[in-house]
């Protein structure tokens, strides 16, 4: 097992209003560690020295909870395609590397502490329209509503979004279009979701805008960094649905 000496430049910020700065740390890791385990080692060192450990969010550590958010050398979730930071292993780096670790940067995602940001705007976008309204009561027969296999597959690929916010972090405009579109598209692709399509498109896009996210420039940096590799085809779907919803809606505008 090969030891790696690394120099880390990590964004430290004591609280939402505090002035933050990049601080430099040295840590000894090995290539089998995940990126988060490497940070655990650093934090253990800091705790033993009586210093404040680096705050970062983490939960499942298996790439499905979407909390371990950090920009590693300018790339959300680091250099490995289709993975979250917790699935990124230190073998992606080499001995002597200098690594920059920064929080998501977006006005809509205020920093709570160090690498932890507040992603509540995503919850409000979902609450605005990312749901289906169905009556409670006895569940209907399975297979009563036919769904073409291709649509089911598409819906599933969009539903894979874990809401981590890497799309926002990677976008030069801090746009949350990929997130919003993925949540829209996975319902749009299913008959149960399509009935509320118009209202959903209006509500989700306007909530997205109200939260202060930017507009999409069609550079597709979001798709490149998305740990679930959500396609920007969802954004084209939302663009079309929103435009047509505004022009067709019968609700008073």
């Amino acid at each position: 097992m090969q030891d790696m000496r690394l120099k880390l430049h990590i964004w430290r910020q004591a609280g939402p209003e505090a002035q933050g700065a990049l601080r430099t740390y040295e840590v000894t890791a090995n290539e089998h560690m995940s990126f988060l385990e490497m940070l655990d080692v650093l934090n253990q060192d800091l705790i033993e020295k009586g210093e404040e450990p680096v705050a970062f969010e983490h939960d499942c550590r298996e790439g499905i909870c979407g909390t371990c958010n950090m920009v590693i050398d300018g790339r959300p979730h680091g250099p490995q395609k289709g993975t979250t930071a917790c699935q990124l292993h230190m073998r992606a780096f080499k001995d002597g590397d200098e690594i920059h670790v920064e929080p998501w940067r977006a006005t809509a995602f205020p920093i709570i502490k160090d690498l932890v940001v507040d992603r509540a705007p995503f919850d409000r976008i979902i609450a605005s329209g990312g749901f289906v309204s169905v009556n409670t009561g006895a569940a209907q027969d399975a297979n009563e509503i036919p769904v073409p296999k291709a649509d089911a597959d598409d819906a599933f690929s969009y539903a894979a979004c874990i809401g981590c916010g890497a799309c926002v972090a990677a976008c030069k405009n801090a746009s949350a279009m990929l997130f919003t579109a993925a949540k829209f598209a996975h319902l749009e692709k299913l008959p149960q979701g399509r009935v509320e399509s118009e209202r959903r498109a209006l509500a989700m896009v306007e909530q997205h805008d109200a939260e202060g996210f930017g507009a999409c420039t069609n550079q597709y940096e979001c798709e490149a960094v998305c740990p679930k590799e959500i396609s920007v085809t969802s954004i084209a779907m939302l663009n079309k649905a929103y435009r047509s919803a505004v022009l067709k809606t019968r609700e008073t505008v």
């Binding site: 990049l22 300018g74 790339r75 920059h100 809509a108 030069k172 405009n173 550079q219 940096e221």
Partner: peptide, 19 residues
Amino acid sequence: RNRAARTVGYAKDHVNVAT
């Protein structure tokens, strides 16, 4: 809108696919 959406940039930036 886009400028207001990110007022603090990254110390180290990286371009993946943008032309």
